[in-house]
Design a protein around this nucleic acid. Sequence first.
DNA 1: CTTGACTCTACACGAATTTGCATGAATTTA
DNA 2: TAAATTCATGCAAATTCGTGTAGAGTCAAG
Lengths: 259, 259
Amino acid sequence: MLAEQRKSLIMDRLRRDGQVVAKAVAEELGLSEDTIRRDLRELAAEGQLRRVHGGAMPLAPELPDFAARRTVSPSVKRALGRAAAALVRPGQLIFLDGGTSTAEIAKALPRDFGFTIATHSPTIAAELEAHPTAEVILIGGRLYKHSMVAVGAAASSQILLIRPDLFFLGATALHPIHGLSTGDLEEAAIKRLIASRAAETFLLATENKLDHVSPCTIMPVSDISGIFVQSGLASDRLAPYRALGVRIIETQADEQDGS
Amino acid sequence: MLAEQRKSLIMDRLRRDGQVVAKAVAEELGLSEDTIRRDLRELAAEGQLRRVHGGAMPLAPELPDFAARRTVSPSVKRALGRAAAALVRPGQLIFLDGGTSTAEIAKALPRDFGFTIATHSPTIAAELEAHPTAEVILIGGRLYKHSMVAVGAAASSQILLIRPDLFFLGATALHPIHGLSTGDLEEAAIKRLIASRAAETFLLATENKLDHVSPCTIMPVSDISGIFVQSGLASDRLAPYRALGVRIIETQADEQDGS
DNA sequence: CTTGACTCTACACGAATTTGCATGAATTTA
DNA sequence: TAAATTCATGCAAATTCGTGTAGAGTCAAG
C-alpha cells in the first residue's frame, strides 16, 4: 500500500462522508493509527483538509445549498448511484442527467474500462475531470440556473446527434398515473428528448419523489425501463409502478450513514 | 522485452489501477526493481506520471496539478480577474475561456446588473451557479480532459452562432514574435475561432507565461486588444508587446498573499 | 570477422523514507 | 476531577531510493 494511495483514499472518504475518523481508517486498512495520523497531518499541511480531534473534516463547511439538498438522504443517493453505475459496460455511451442523484453515479463510475459520458450538466462534467478512462461529451445551451443544466434549442440539436445506450434520469416527482414530472417546462422537454434518443432510460428516485406530482410532465412511467429505489420501502408503494411493467431495482445503502 | 514496451505496460497499469507498485511490476516481469525504478523515473521526467515512494500515481487524481498551478500566484490571478471583470458592461455578452485565471474573472463578476456569460468550460459554468444576475450559455462538445474545455466540431458550430462583445482568453505561452500559443491543437483552434467572433479579445497573463512558446500557435499578439499583467514587471519585458500596438493593463495584487 | 562505441540491465552500498511502537502531553468525556 | 482517548515526538527496523560499477547485448565501421 502506497502512502499516496492512502492519502487519496482518505480524501475520497472525506468527500464522500464529509468526515474521516482516524481509527476507522486504520482498522479498515490494517495499519497503525500513527500512520493515518501522520497522513492526516501532512494532508492538513498541504491544505487538503482540516485536522480535528479524532480525524479530519473538509476545508469548507460544505456549500449551504448543496449541504441542504444532501441532507435529504446522502447514503441513499450513494447507493442508487453505485447500483446505476454498475450497469455501465465498456464502450457504451451513457447520458447523465443533472442533479445530486446522478452526480453520485458520476462518482461511482467504473475506472477499469473506457466508455463515454454525455451530459448537459456542467457540474457533472466537472465531476468527471478526475476520471481516468471516461470520454466526456458536454451538451451546451442556455443554462437553466436553478438546476444547472443546459436547455433550449442549442441543447436539443446536439442531443439529436447522439444515441445513448443508457440514460440515467432524475425527476422532481413520480406518480403511477401522472408519470414523471418536474418544475420547469424546458427541462422537461430536454429530458423527454434525451429519453427518446436513448435505448434504455432509468430513473433514480429517492423516497420523497414517490407518488408526487410536479407541474411539468416529462413522460409516462411506462416509457422508462427501470427505477432505482432504496431498499426497505413498503411493497404496496412500489406495486403500482411494477404493474406498469417497469423494473424496480432496490439498492442497499451502506451502514454508516453520513451524518 | 523492450524498454518502451515496459513503459507502456506501466502506463496501462497506472490507468487501470490508479497506481503502480515498483516491486510488483518487477516481480511480474521478472526484472530487477532497479529497472522498473529507472522507467518510473524517466516517465516522471516526461511528465507521464507522478513518482511516489514505492511506485507511482497518476498525474492529477487529486488535482495536485491544479493545486500546483494555483500556487503559482493566487493573489496575482485574483487581481487579474478583478481588473478584467471591471470591463464588463450591462447587457454585454462575455466569453470566458477555461483556466484558473479566467475562473477568477467569474468570481469577480459584478452582481448589480445583468449580462450574459458564454463559456466552453464546465468548471467556469459551475462556478457561475451562485451568481444572481448572470445568464449563462454553455458551449458543448467533446471535453478535452486536461484543461477541461469543450473542443471539436460541435463546439465550433455553437460558437459560430454567437458574437461576444468581450473574450477573456487564457494561454500557455506568450511571445512577441511567436504570438500566443498553447499545448493542444484543438484547443488553439477553438480559442482562435472565439477570438475571431469577438469584438475585443483580452489575454490574462501571469508572469510565467511571458516570453515563452508552446507547440500550438493560437494567434499573433497584434490580434488581441489588450493584455492583463501584474504590476511591478520590468518595463523592458513589456516593451516588445507595447510596440505591437497592444494595450497593457497592469493590475495591483492585494496585500494578503494567499498562502 | 573483429573491434569499439553505445545501450541496457543487474548488483552493491550508503542515504533517505516509511512504519510501528513507546512515552509523555494534551484533549475529550463522564 | 478522573478516566479514557487522542496526539506529537523520538527511535529502531524495514523498505525504498539513487548512484556508481560491471557485465551482456546490439550495431556499425573497418
